[in-house]
Amino acid sequence: MEQAKESAPNLHRLAALGGSISVCVSLVIIWAAKAGVDRTIYVSGLGADGEPTAGAFEVALLLLVAGGYAVAWALRAAALGAAGRWTPSLSVVISSSLFLVASQVPCTYGCPVPLGDTFTWQDLTHVVSAVAGFSFAALAMVQVSVADTHPALRRLSRACGVLVAVIAAAGGVSCLLDVRTDIGSLLEFAATTVGMGWLAVIGAAVTFLPARPESGEDVEQSDSELVGVS
């Protein structure tokens, strides 16, 4: 029984580390695909139907999803996160699930902006999934930024949350207005890098954070302390 209790935290740490590595590999694939395109392109455009980078982009998103699930599972056992039912772990799970949908429903060639003549239901599904995925990832950052955890992680999460919101918003406006899309494209890739980098760092941090004690252990410890006092 004791050996099982000791192995559980180790499994969560391995999951966190594996998830962090998976996210890093995903980010490298995305930037490698970006480097192979000699025109202005947004992140989702790398996976659009007919793009040479579509296969690599799908693999990158699936690695991101797998890494997100692994880190989320590890977060449940780490002393990291807000109290209550809606935790950073749940936000990361929802975000990863939405990116899973986006990976399987890519936008059409050129990724037309919403409300355009060539905009389709397939594009709508992809855009909504991707945007919502980013939103839940940002929510996880906010949750960690106010959690009772390491001050450095709170500051990192606060800074990343603000950066993702501001950079992604600027890139989105550039795309919608079709103004300086070259800059808008770089802004979107920057926001993606910040968001994925945050998840990778959180996964690495959870690897070394102490596991959250179970409620039964808390009660047992409190009882023993009371006995000692008495």
Rank of each mutant, 00 (worst) to 15 (best):
E2D: 05
Q3C: 13
S7E: 11
A8H: 03
P9W: 09
L11W: 07
H12F: 07
L14C: 10
L17A: 07
G18H: 08
I21P: 00
V23R: 00
V25P: 04
S26Q: 02
V37D: 09
T40P: 03
V43G: 00
V43S: 02
L46R: 02
D49Y: 06
E51Q: 10
P52D: 14
A60G: 04
V65N: 03
A66L: 14
A72V: 01
W73D: 12
A77H: 01
G81D: 00
R85T: 12
T87R: 01
L90E: 08
S91Y: 02
S97A: 09
S97H: 05
L98F: 05
F99D: 02
Y109G: 06
G110R: 04
G110N: 06
C111M: 09
P112K: 04
V113E: 09
V113I: 15
T118Q: 14
F119L: 09
H126P: 00
S135M: 11
A138D: 07
A138Q: 09
Q143H: 08
Q143P: 02
A147Q: 07
T149D: 04
H150R: 12
P151K: 12
R154C: 08
S157T: 07
S157M: 06
A159R: 03
V162S: 10
A165R: 01
I167Y: 03
I167E: 04
A169F: 09
V179I: 12
R180I: 07
R180T: 10
G184Q: 03
S185I: 07
F189K: 02
F189Y: 13
T193P: 00
L199G: 13
I202V: 15
G203P: 01
A205G: 04
T207R: 02
T207H: 03
L209T: 12
P213T: 05
E214W: 06
S215E: 12
D218W: 11
V219F: 07
E220H: 13
E220W: 11
L226K: 15
L226H: 15
